[in-house]
């Protein structure tokens, strides 16, 4: 078990170092003279990664599928623009955005997470619709015409913030998954009744995780609000973003830290190609890719790769039966 713990610790250490190095490199891009095309591509990669990891923290680890992460990000975007327009400082505004999304998640979390996964999924769909309806009706939210950020921030600011959120969320999933609490969450995903028989308060775990996950989604949306600077409710609260938030981790490997990274890279690549070739079909094609991944790799690309490499590992260490006999 010492070995096992050593292996776990090594994975966390090397994984964290890799994440920090990537985060630093990507955050430095605005000063490294890369083209704005590359910088924008990296920004969107980080945006979808942050959103995907937020979804992953809840749905990937518990198996309770959320369709609300786009809407939660939208709440963050609206909150940050309203707060900044009220002359609040950036840090406070981002905090308000995260809290707003967290609070919104509690409404569905507390009411539906006692129940089965399908009730939760329907509740998240309901939230998505409810928020769109509210934002279009509420006077201070600008109605169907949306709202505009009054102050213009330098482009590097949302870039650096988004990379930091994406890197931080990935780090959080990496470390949490291998923590004792993370282990108990994975046990719960496998069998909730058996988990409660070993003292796990499943409802509480799910509510807390969903709230944390929503806060990250809200923060992600907030940073994107600063980036986009004008918000239209039909865009911000379209179901598309919620679908991307779940497609990214599912393609790459839900419940793993690496999965959403792969998923985000693949999705951003696909999106670039399809925006030229078939802009209207892009979510349909993402759906097809997702189906293919599920069909051929079951649980996403990262776990499939893991199995492949572990197999090679074993072959390297343990002699095959034929060799033993010879």
């Amino acid at each position: 078990m010492k070995v096992e713990r050593g292996r776990d610790l090594a994975k966390i250490t090397w994984g964290s170092l890799a994440i920090l190095a990537c985060t630093a490199a990507m955050a430095a891009l605005p000063w490294l003279g890369v083209t704005s095309y590359v910088r924008t591509l990296v920004y969107y990669g980080a945006y979808f990664l942050a959103l995907g990891q937020a979804w992953n923290l809840m749905s990937g680890l518990t198996g309770y599928v959320s369709f609300a992460h786009g809407a939660l990000a939208g709440i963050g975007a609206y909150a940050v623009v309203l707060a900044l327009n009220a002359d609040l400082p950036m840090v406070i505004s981002l905090l308000i955005a995260a809290i707003a999304a967290g609070l919104a998640s509690l409404i569905i979390g507390v009411t539906s997470l006692r129940l089965k996964g399908t009730s939760f999924t329907f509740a998240t769909l309901f939230l998505q619709e409810l928020v769109l309806l509210l934002v279009r009706k509420l006077p201070f939210a600008g109605g169907p015409g949306g709202i505009v950020l009054e102050e213009i921030f330098p482009l590097w600011l949302p870039h650096v913030l988004m990379i930091a959120v994406a890197g931080g969320a990935t780090l959080l999933v990496l470390v949490f998954r291998r923590s004792r609490t993370g282990l108990r969450v994975l046990a719960m995903r496998d069998d909730e009744a058996a988990a409660s028989a070993i003292g796990i308060d499943a409802t509480r775990v799910k509510i807390v995780l969903f709230c944390a996950s929503a806060a990250i989604a809200g923060l992600t949306g907030a940073v994107h609000g600063v980036f986009a600077s004008s918000l239209f409710p039909n865009e911000v609260f379209s179901i598309d973003l919620s679908i991307i938030a779940l497609a990214v981790p599912l393609i790459g490997g839900a419940g793993t830290a690496l999965g959403p990274v792969l998923g985000a890279v693949i999705y951003v690549g696909l999106r670039e190609i399809l925006q030229v070739l078939a802009p209207n079909l892009h979510l349909t094609i993402v759906g097809v890719v997702l189906l293919l991944v599920i069909l051929f790799m079951r649980d996403g690309i990262a776990p499939a790769l893991g199995r492949l490499f572990r197999l090679k590992d074993r072959r390297g260490q343990v002699p095959a039966i034929a060799e033993v006999r010879a």
Binding site: M1, E4, R180, L186, A187, R189, D190, D191, A194, A195
Partner: peptide, 19 residues
């Protein structure tokens, strides 16, 4: 039997030790 199938045997027991 209701093991946590996604976990190892050791992790099944570890998960049950109160944190």
């Amino acid at each position: 039997c209701r093991p946590f199938r996604g976990l190892t045997v050791a992790e099944n027991v570890l998960a049950a030790i109160p944190p």
